[in-house]
Amino acid sequence: MDNTFITGKLKTRFPENILAVDEHSDMLTVVVAKEVIHEVIRFLKENESLGFTFLTTLCGIHYPDQELQLGVVYHMHRFSDNTRIRIKTFLPVGNPVVPTVTDLFSGANWMERETYDFYGILFEGHPNLKRILNVEYLDYFPMRKEYPLEDPTREDKDNRFFGR
């Protein structure tokens, strides 16, 4: 299936909420507004001519310099002709709420819990949104960029010489 067909379909169905389309990456990447993310995923899964029935991954990402800092990235797969698509949506860090897709994909349950655990993204309507890999009493979201791996007060090491 070619990319123009998919983007055409999406743009017809969601004329105002497809924010960006990128075809230069290894697969078609579409950024959509968070208001319609659930509908977009449902459309991709259930529309007969699209049929992306496999949710490969769901994960978070954090860009501290953006206005909408937190992102959720969905990778979907259509088995019949091996087409993959990447859907992204971005959320403000003050109110990181996005609808769950567990009603469409049972497998999204733990993936969303993992994303919540590490990025603090709240999946509205999730049946059991609690930490999964970290301890329950952890009071921060460790994969956010403000938590560096090394002690930031360390003075004996000049980061300029060690990349990031």
Partner: peptide, 13 residues
């Protein structure tokens, strides 16, 4: 999560 080792975080450095 008993042997979670935060590979994704470690990988960022």
């Amino acid at each position: 999560g008993y042997i979670h080792r935060a590979f994704e975080k470690i990988a960022e450095r």
